[in-house]
Amino acid sequence: MRRSFFNWQDRLAWVVIAFCLAVLFAPARLKTVVLLPAQTVLLAPNRLLAGLSAGVAGLGRENARLARLAAELAVENARLRALAGADVRVPGDTLPLMRATVIGRDLATFERYLTISLGRLSGVRPGDPVVTADGVVGTLVACGDHQSLVQTLLSPSARAAVMSLRSHTPGVTRPARGGLLDISYLPKDADYGAGDTVVTAGLGRVFPKGLPVGVVTLTPEEPAAAQSGLFKPVKVRPFVDFSRLGAVFVLRLPETAPAVPVPGSRSRVWLENLVPDEVSPPEEDELR
């Protein structure tokens, strides 16, 4: 037993251990100089991974910022396009957007209701519109402290006042089969054609005017009975893919539209959407 601990291999092992002991008690400066090249080589994967993770985190933040910017620009662009042909003052300020993450869906269809990560404590309230950079998603129907329920346009009870961007013919959407929207109660001569862009009409105090909703599609499968009815059947394919939403934006609108518009304020923009073009809003002095 004793002899087995004193062969050359054991001696070499003890030399290694003595070397370790020497390293432990060597001057720190010497250790730094000697081990720095080894550190550079052996810990290279760690530095690479740290750089990659920092890059990914930075990309995530940049992506969120750009998504928010895109949504703001899309909303503003849609409003400007909708208002371009009308004699309505273009609002000078944009509506505030709050980014929210989709944290839940209804398990039946994945499309009718969403749960988002903003609640009352973040300042959102039931009735607030929810949009993405692509277009309208729906409205908030219930708000907890930290999360809210969104009713999408595909929910059976969801309605939205819309109009054709080309002809400004108004209508009301309701969900149809196949992820499409119907525009109800359009007269037979309503000016809606395939490919028309449909935007919100700004009626009903829910959605601001001009938010993109979808595009009118051809409906060859429409039954002949419906074609011969009183109303014109129009189907709209929403711009938003409701089943793949990851993040949305809540539009914070003024709580109520005041009777007197305050020049330059957001409430004036809101009120302008409710008043027909040919009727000018009353002046403040008249109402006093």
């Binding site: 370790c20 002991l21 390293v23 432990l24 400066r29 250790k31 081990l35 550190q39």
Partner: peptide
């Protein structure tokens, strides 16, 4: 020990 070369030797030993 390479994570802190100045105090190397402890884990080594």
């Amino acid at each position: 020990d390479l994570s802190a070369p100045g105090s190397a030797g402890l884990n080594l030993l």
